[in-house]
Amino acid sequence: MFVLGRPFASYHLWSLVAPAVGQERWHCQMKRGFIKARQKEPIVQELLAQATPPQRIGILAQKGVYEFHHHRELLSQADGVEKVAQLLKLSKTSEEVQQRVIQILKNYHGDPVLAGKQIVQLTRGDEGFPRPIFIKQVEYPFRLYAAMDCVFSEAGSRLHILDFKTGKSAFDQRQALVYLVAARYLYPHHKAVASFYNLERCKKSALITVSSSQLDTIENQLAVVAQKHQQDLRRYEQKPVNFSKIFPPNPGSHCRYCSFSSICEFSTAKSDCGEAEIKPMG
C-alpha cells in the first residue's frame, strides 16, 4: 500500500522533476513515478536493486578514492592500484566494470586530487540516505537530503565541496547548488564553494560560488520541487489509476537505457529491438 511521507527535496528529486538544460528531449516524468511513487511494489523494488554498470562504476570509483585515503600508504606504493582493486573485490564484477574502474584507480593513483588536502568528510559512496536537513521555509518547510562525496578545508575558514563523477555526462550545476544550500546548515560558520571532478576523464569543473541571496533563491526552488512532488504523490495516492496522467511518459530511443522499460507499457525499447532485428544488412 502506498504511504504518503513528509515533503522532501534532493538533487536527485530535482533532476527527476525537471531536466538539466539541453536534456529536455530525454526527460521522462514516468521514471519519477516508478522511483518515488511505486517503489514499494515488488517488481519495482527488484528493478531498483539492480545497479546498472554505470551506477556500479560510480560507486566503486568513490570507494576506490575512499580506500586510497583510508590506507594512505597505498598512494605511494607501486602496487597500490592492485591492492585497492582487491579491497573493492573487482574480480567479482563484469569485465567492463573491472576495466573502467582499474583505469580510474590508475588515474587517481597517478594524480590523487585530494592528496595534501585537509579532508573534513569523505564518503565511501554506499552509506545510503544521509540524515535529513530540516529547511524551515516560512511558506513550505521540507527536508533536504544531500549526500556529499567530499568536503575539505581550504585557506581560512572556506570549505570546498567536491563531487566525483564518472562517464561522459556533463556536470549538472544544480547538484553543486544543492550541496551549497546544505552546507549553509551543516557548516553555518564557514563559507563554502563547490566543484566537480571526473575521475574517468581527469576533468575538473570551474569553481561554483553563490551569494547568500542566491542561496535563498535556490532554497525557494527546492521548496517548489518538494511541493510539486508531494502534490503529485497525493494525487497518485487518491487515484492510482491515473499514474500515467500524473507522471506522463516521454517514450523515445532513451527508453532502451531506462531501468523500467520491461514494465512500462509506453516503452519503445522492445519495438526498437524488433526493428533492429529485421533491419536489412548491408
Rank of each mutant, 00 (worst) to 15 (best):
91 S>I: 02
162 L>R: 03
115 A>D: 14
84 V>I: 14
104 I>H: 07
74 L>H: 01
85 A>H: 01
82 E>G: 00
98 Q>F: 01
157 S>A: 12
101 V>Q: 01
107 N>W: 02
116 G>T: 09
110 G>F: 04
99 Q>S: 11
107 N>T: 03
67 E>H: 14
155 A>H: 11
149 D>Y: 06
82 E>C: 01
131 R>D: 15
115 A>T: 08
159 L>H: 05
95 E>H: 04
148 M>H: 07
139 E>L: 14
64 G>A: 02
144 L>Q: 12
78 A>D: 15
80 G>W: 00
144 L>P: 06
73 E>Y: 10
117 K>Y: 13
164 F>E: 01
109 H>P: 04
107 N>R: 10
91 S>L: 03
165 K>P: 09
105 L>R: 02
101 V>K: 00
151 V>F: 14
149 D>S: 07
159 L>S: 04
66 Y>P: 01
134 F>G: 07
130 P>G: 08
155 A>Q: 13
96 E>C: 07
65 V>S: 02
84 V>Q: 02
160 H>M: 13
99 Q>A: 09
135 I>M: 11
60 L>K: 07
84 V>A: 05
142 F>N: 04
100 R>S: 00
128 G>C: 09
90 L>M: 06
60 L>N: 03
137 Q>G: 13
103 Q>H: 09
152 F>A: 06
106 K>V: 10
131 R>Y: 08
62 Q>I: 08
84 V>P: 00
99 Q>P: 00
149 D>F: 00
122 L>F: 03
69 H>G: 05
122 L>T: 11
60 L>H: 06
75 L>H: 01
74 L>P: 03
136 K>T: 13
108 Y>N: 01
162 L>G: 07
138 V>F: 12
103 Q>L: 01
89 K>P: 05
139 E>G: 06
158 R>Q: 13
81 V>L: 00
148 M>V: 07
115 A>S: 14
85 A>S: 15
151 V>E: 08
99 Q>I: 01
129 F>H: 10
62 Q>K: 13
157 S>R: 13
112 P>C: 10
145 Y>G: 07
162 L>V: 11
69 H>D: 03
87 L>T: 04
76 S>C: 05
92 K>A: 15
71 H>C: 07
132 P>A: 06
138 V>H: 06
98 Q>L: 00
160 H>F: 12
160 H>N: 14
138 V>M: 11
87 L>E: 06
103 Q>D: 04
67 E>G: 03
149 D>E: 05
120 V>S: 09
107 N>K: 12
143 R>Y: 09
125 G>H: 01
124 R>G: 08
104 I>P: 05
85 A>T: 01
62 Q>F: 00
82 E>I: 01
